[in-house]
Design a protein around this nucleic acid. Structure first.
Lengths: 194, 194
DNA sequence: TCCACCATGTAACTGGTTACATGATTAC
DNA sequence: GTAATCATGTAACCAGTTACATGGTGGA
């Protein structure tokens, strides 16, 4: 009774390929050099991941050997792949998403506007903010309950986690304001891929 | 040319066991119910991890079958285990630690005071703060360089990462102040395990 | 007695890690 | 020609996941 779920890195690849058809090498560079560095850029991670996605018919690769260029296998999304990506991006936020660190939610949000449009991204922020609002008090009570702490450093580490979520919450408010600002300027359109 | 490194969860277990000898079940509860929930509480993760640590002679388990109690295998640190834990806690902070998310550094800090004393923990915070100060500008320039962003949501996601590190930096300052405050009240002692 | 929970494990699968292999192309 | 870099891959290993198995203990 388990969905044959694509791991997080698979979705990262789907999202990047949706933005721009890419080779394994392109993806390695992105993971190695940009802020997406939390995902592995090792060939032993990326090439097998591409093969798995291709086996599931979510992407398709074609070699571009034309005129003296280096051999290069560029992947692009299939219709199934785009559907899978949209389905992932459309999932509702569940408490577990927030508890396990917000990495997956942020990855989804980063791709969301291009794929589903700015109004969906804006709605997502509202959901996100609400989920954080519900979760933070639980952490704070955890801090108070454990009043007789083992050490100052242990308590501070816990406080650091709470601050992280508070900062995330502040970011959602900021981001919501940014979307409101942009909506007054231009109409919300479903983000056509050029 | 690779150290037979204990994975992060192994150190989490060593740290917890140092605080208080524990069984696999105890650890499961801690990982499931407290703020350490980012580590897996599944039996398939914990029991093999305990076996690995025992095989490396870092911990030793003994069954406590006394008087009608349920069978229970409590582990405690060996001398080697304590040495390994101290060695891990004493490692200098390298840029990579900060880039790959600060999870390992926070775990180390949480255990640090009990094992190595408050002055080491305090020094650690200073190092941590310096590492963050060096890293944040790189992220900010990444934001500026990618000025023609794909979408507002992608830019905001990047900003969220930066804010997270800034909040971490603010926390280090706060934590350093807390240590200064505590040092004026009581002398810094190497934290004897009772 | 039977159910809930305590407590420890095991097995198959999945996927990431390090490290190595291979060869083509470009710049010097 | 030779070094750097582009580009794709492979293999052995390691550890976490889900799911199941086993049995003791206490309370209804």
């Amino acid at each position: 009774m388990k969905a044959p779920s694509t791991p997080l890195m698979g979705y990262a690849i789907l999202g990047l390929i949706q933005q721009k058809p890419s080779s394994g090498y392109d993806l390695r560079k992105i993971f190695a050099e940009t802020a997406m560095g939390n995902y592995s850029s090792s060939p032993g991670a990326i090439y097998p991941a591409l093969e798995r996605l291709e086996a599931k018919r979510l992407i398709r690769g074609e070699v571009t050997e034309s005129m003296g260029l280096r051999r290069r296998k560029a992947y692009r999304l299939t219709a199934r792949g785009e559907a899978e990506l949209k389905q992932w991006l459309s999932r509702p936020i569940v408490p577990n998403d927030v508890m396990r660190g917000a990495g997956e939610l942020m990855l989804r949000f980063a791709f969301m506007e291009q794929v589903l449009g700015s109004s969906v991204a804006s709605d997502f922020l509202v959901q996100f903010s609400a989920a954080l609002k519900a979760y933070i008090p639980a952490l704070e009570s955890c801090l108070l309950n454990n009043a007789p702490h083992r050490s100052l450093s242990a308590r501070l580490a816990l406080e650091c986690g709470i601050r992280g979520y508070q900062s995330l919450q502040e970011w959602t408010q900021y981001a919501i304001r940014q979307y409101r600002k942009s909506q007054t300027n231009q109409t919300s359109r479903p983000a056509q891929s050029r």
